[in-house]
Design a protein around this nucleic acid. Structure first.
Length: 574
RNA sequence: GCCCCCGUAGCUCAACGGAUAGAGCACCAGCCUCCGAAGCUGGUGGUGCGUGUUCAAUUCACGCCGGGGGCACCA
């Protein structure tokens, strides 16, 4: 449920009735929450939208509307016309406080909605080649993809996380050859890593390990492929787990061929007239759907192209889900048009396919860009990253940025900034509330009711809490902020914009910290007051709600919500 | 040449087409007998250029300028 939505709907019907009175058909009415409190709690631009149609200046129309709306319901303090013709509504605190019970009641579920109607979405991300360890770009994709999946679930979709394993093709052969060479080298034999092969240290180590496990004769190339692949996949899974990302499915490209899915997809395309032969190769007519040129699906040598597998994979995904979301790396943006074309050619709605490009991560070292290449063996791995900074910090760092923009990542800087990282700010707000509760437990006389509020499983009915005792302006603002959470989730899920989440959490933490800090100057802001039990309860109630929302937001980002912040580095008060 | 991403504060990034463009870091000045100073308060400082659409443009369209990336019968 979304309490804010209900408030909006109520005002909406007021406006609709007013429009009816002056004979203007009502369009969709949009509200925004003004940045400044002087502009009220909710604002609409309806008078400016309709000014032309009404043949009146916006402000005059706004006045007409306002007159029709009188008298306002008791939960609206006042309504004003401002600026070029905004109608601003000022709500009484109880309009918000009354909805807090819902946050308490829903707990971990607060913020979730059912807008997705259980629609299944297949979300594919990371999908790095199984030829080496995951790098930082994969880390970014993992953080974003995982949080998008969480957001979609919270918005009422069924999100399925999938990792596509490119275990077929030239790069795998090169990989196997490179490993074989390392193996032979470890045995002291002459062997060269193929040109374009994989030079990384990790293969050297693996080759040495294989050499130690005494083979009587040099194994077949296929053996290196098999062992190497397994090793790489296990390593990738381990890194991802360390990062807190677990996939629902690891989908093998080779399965598409084994299970004849690839062949069937191509047959369908052929039947529909989108395939043709030229110079001994088979082409897909992607230009029929706006691609620059047609694309090869079967090469002259009879092998299927990577793209052919991808066609089959997308068909398979569309058979399993209503919507498909792909997170591509920046080097794959050229694939967007042809992928979309293939989906359309197979008869699926291309609108149901969303391809997000997770932009590159420029790794910097002392402000100099470090070029990464898996084949040349120059890379900074996800594990290297996690050796330096915690998963919480890394995830937050990646989530803060819109994923469609390139990201400069200075490892040295990231490490240095760790103590000041904003993620701690949010966690600290959460821990601080926990701390206040610990304090309250010792100070407030133990009555039957209060224990329940201090208990994690507290529910509203356990004890009457009089929220009208919350009279400070910041308390109303905090309640307002909390109630915006479901909309934040819904919007972020709709736009697939994970970065809204950290910003919201930061804002909420900020408002709380500022509110809390007033207590030093002003006793009215003090939460725990042994002399005033009802007021303490009301404040604790609000704080509990803040804590719940912070928890839920952090959970969506895959970040922990600690009860205490513990660090030796940070000095405690003298 | 074509395609994609990006130009917002000294740096890293925000801003459903809305009102006085916001945060963090950095810098300056204050604040711990009192629920955690990983904190709070105040200050310095910004939309690359041009034209259009609109009541309203950081946002949309077009054109420049600048930075990055991609344009395989490799995956």
């Amino acid at each position: 449920m979304d309490p804010m939505q209900k408030i909006k709907e109520k005002i909406e019907s007021l406006i609709e009735r007013a429009l009816e009175q002056i004979n203007i058909p009502a369009p969709e009415i949009v509200f925004s929450v003004p940045k400044q409190t002087v502009h009220g709690d909710l604002s609409t631009n309806i008078a400016m939208i309709l000014a032309k149609e009404a043949k009146k200046p916006p402000r005059v129309l706004a006045e007409d509307l306002l007159r029709q709306m009188m008298p306002l319901p008791d939960w609206i303090e006042k309504a004003e016309i401002a600026g070029p013709g905004f109608i601003n509504f000022f709500l009484k605190p109880h309009a918000y406080f009354n909805s807090l019970a819902m946050i308490m009641k829903e707990g971990k579920k607060f913020g979730s909605t059912k807008k997705g109607k259980g629609e299944k979405i297949i979300l594919e991300f990371v999908s790095a080649n199984p030829t080496g360890p995951l790098n930082v770009v994969s880390a970014r994709a993992a953080a974003v993809g995982d949080t998008l999946a969480n957001l979609l679930k919270a918005a009422g979709f069924k999100a399925h996380k999938e990792f596509y394993v490119n275990d077929v093709g030239n790069q795998i052969e090169l990989f196997a050859e490179s490993l074989r060479a390392r193996y032979l080298q470890a045995l002291g034999k002459e062997a060269a890593i193929p040109e374009e092969g994989y030079q990384g240290e990790y293969l050297k180590r693996l080759g040495e390990k294989l050499a130690r496990s005494s083979f009587r004769r040099t194994p077949e190339s296929s053996h290196f492929k098999k062992v190497g692949l397994k090793k790489m996949l296990d390593g990738q899974k381990k890194s991802l787990k360390r990062f807190g990302v677990v996939f629902d499915k690891w989908y093998l490209q080779s399965d598409l061929i084994k299970k004849k899915k690839l062949q069937k997809s191509l047959a369908r395309l052929k039947k529909r007239g989108f395939l043709y032969e030229k110079e001994g190769a088979v082409f897909f007519r992607s230009t029929a759907f706006g691609d620059d040129k047609d694309r090869v699906v079967q090469k002259q040598d009879g092998e299927y192209s990577y793209f052919a597998s991808d066609i089959a994979y997308h068909e398979d995904k569309f058979k399993r889900g209503v919507r498909v979301i792909d997170l591509f790396g920046p080097d794959h943006h050229g694939y967007v048009a042809r992928t979309r074309a293939s989906v359309a050619a197979l008869g699926f709605d291309p609108e149901k396919l969303t391809i997000l490009i997770i932009q590159q991560v420029n790794l910097l070292e002392n402000e100099v860009v470090v070029k990464m290449s898996k084949r040349a063996g120059k890379l900074i791995t996800m594990d290297d990253l996690l050796d330096e900074i915690s998963p919480d910090v890394a995830r937050f760092f990646f989530l803060q940025r819109a994923s469609s923009t390139p990201l400069d990542f200075d490892l040295a800087l990231a490490k240095k900034e760790t103590p000041e990282n904003p993620v701690y700010y949010i966690q600290y707000a959460h821990a601080r509330i926990a701390s206040i509760f610990r304090k309250a437990k010792t100070v407030i006389p133990a009555k039957a009711g209060i224990q329940s509020l201090l208990d994690p499983d507290f529910r509203r009915d356990d004890e009457k809490v009089d929220l009208s005792l919350l009279t400070l302006p910041q308390e109303k603002e905090l309640a307002k902020k909390l109630l915006q959470f479901p909309e934040v989730i819904a919007e972020a899920a709709k736009d697939l914009a994970a970065h809204h989440l950290p910003f919201y959490a930061l804002e909420l933490a900020k408002e709380f910290q500022a509110y809390y800090s007033h207590a030093k100057q002003d006793a009215r802001y003090k939460v725990v007051d042994a002399e005033n039990r009802p007021k303490t309860l009301a404040k604790l109630y609000l704080l509990k709600n803040i804590q719940i929302v912070l928890q839920n937001a952090l959970k969506l980002m895959g970040i922990s919500a600690p009860e205490r912040m513990e660090s030796k580095d940070v000095a405690s008060p003298i």
